[in-house]
Design a protein around this nucleic acid. Structure first.
Lengths: 204, 204
DNA sequence: TGCGTTTTAAATCAATCGTTATAAAATGTA
DNA sequence: TACATTTTATAACGATTGATTTAAAACGCA
């Protein structure tokens, strides 16, 4: 019926993600983008619409790739190891981030979302999902006694979420292993059941 | 000797901060900037150099105004109340941020610093200073017994720093009081001395 | 009151911005 | 094989970008 596309949409979207992720929205021109995707500007506009639409698709693609499977992958583990493994992976990813791209969701939360309602909604939804993952972990752990119940589960989930975001920002300018691995220790200690409390009731 | 400036440097820098803070570096054109500062583009270039130089001066001005006095203001308080008051103020500032500008230092940590060595150094230095403030608070508290010593002081300082950055990011898309005030509770709980431990040693 | 100097204002520079025509190339279907 | 349709490549659109030029305006000092 018509001339077929010469490119694979997933492939060029991966390249678009790479470009926007590294340089951000404003600092990436359509020509930068087209070159990174291996397309002409005409093809970009024909296939995706305008620049904002490409960014939208790229961000969705990034979110799907970064949060879609990961949550499920950790949720099969016991609660405390799940949280620990989650942060271990984030720290390793941050330390291995030679180009200092950080997390594209955090980047768009600061550059794009504040001036664009739609992106604000998208980012907020993902943050709610991540918070939900933490909340389910904490609840499960508090029920089976593997996570301390001295603190409210919702509060703890919020603490974990803000810690995650904090690491992502901090690693952007100070990707130091000691700093990142050190700061996570007290947070994980917060989750561990208090042995001292058991000792008290065991003494008499 | 020559024609005097018609503007006050501090005043126009305050306006430049406002513009860069709200829109970021890339999304702010020289004409946006000049208009916000109430100057012509020629005056901007004559007085400051190029766009990057204006941003540099604006960021320095912001840092001085935001971190310069604040640290000293809290450091006169007892350690735990100092940390608590610091976060209370950050939360109130975040919730009152109608324009969702967030923290200009965090913004530049993500938009400018990754692609500019000089700004990377500037941002990193401020983060080290804030970490130092937290570290001094924790150390003082651990010495006089008002802050728990179950966790390493450096680790705790890192946790507080990442929590601060996390709040700044989170509030940008989800400025919800319950969320922010909730997440800070476990972090402060982390600092409080453990009453149970004292009970254990008091029993025999 | 001029002189030297700097800041202003206005216009303009080439380059790049996001976006779109135009027409050739490439397909399935008739 | 010719037609209808879509994707390509190339070029160009007006607008805006960061930055500069030119000349008038405004001072201190001689």
């Amino acid at each position: 019926m018509a001339r077929p596309r010469e490119f694979d949409e997933e492939k060029v979207l991966t390249l678009a993600v790479e470009q926007f992720w590294e340089r951000g929205y404003e600092a990436t021109s359509i020509r930068d983008l087209a070159q990174a995707m291996g397309l002409t500007t005409a093809s970009v506009y024909n296939a995706f619409g305008d620049k904002r639409a490409v960014y939208r698709r790229a961000l969705d693609f990034y979110i799907e790739r970064s949060f879609g499977d990961r949550v499920g992958r950790f949720e099969s583990k016991p609660p405390l190891p799940a949280v620990k493994a989650f942060f271990d992976e984030i720290i390793e990813r941050s330390l291995g981030d030679v180009k200092r791209k950080g997390c594209m969701l955090v980047n768009s939360a600061l550059e794009v979302a504040p001036h664009d309602e739609e992106f604000q909604r998208v980012v907020a939804e993902v943050l709610v999902q991540v918070e939900g993952f933490f909340l389910r972990c904490v609840r499960r752990g508090q029920e089976d006694g593997t996570i301390s119940d001295r603190q409210n589960a919702s509060d703890l989930a919020g603490t974990l979420l803000s810690t995650l975001l904090g690491i992502r920002v901090l690693a952007r300018t100070r990707p130091e292993r000691d700093l990142l691995e050190g700061l996570i220790k007290p947070v994980l200690g917060l989750l561990e059941p208090a042995v001292t409390t058991r000792l008290v009731s065991a003494v008499p």
